[in-house]
């Protein structure tokens, strides 16, 4: 399978990645090669095979409904790029 420039642009946008115009062709080529590798899967007969999401057939454990965390806002916001009045700041969000 081969990816076009437009595919790269579409998925880069979906993944919110800026890709320089000059690099798009190289990404298209590299990604196409990788999909070439992945294409071996097409030939595999997987009829009736259960998809495997986890190594084990284990079951989700449930946590007791207890408040165990306390306020660490100042600690966590020390590493934030931009805060004011306890809020994380981002460019204006449109509704």
């Amino acid at each position: 399978m081969s990816l076009e420039r437009s595919d790269v642009e579409r998925i880069a946008h979906l993944a919110r990645l800026e890709v320089a115009e000059k690099d798009i062709s190289e990404y298209a080529r590299n990604l196409s090669n990788i999909f070439g590798l992945v294409a071996q899967l097409e030939a595999v007969d997987t009829d009736g095979v259960k998809p495997m999401a986890h190594p084990f057939d284990a079951v989700q454990r449930l946590r007791a409904d207890e408040v165990t965390e306390s306020n660490q806002r100042d600690h966590f916001q020390q590493i934030a790029p931009k805060v004011a009045d306890g809020l994380y700041l981002v460019p204006k969000v449109l509704d």
């Binding site: 931009k82 004011a84 009045d85 809020l87 994380y88 700041l89 981002v90 460019p91 204006k92």
Partner: peptide
């Protein structure tokens, strides 16, 4: 308004 920015409360 935070000088034209949006504040996020999580």
């Amino acid at each position: 308004d935070f000088a034209g920015l949006t504040g996020i409360d999580l």
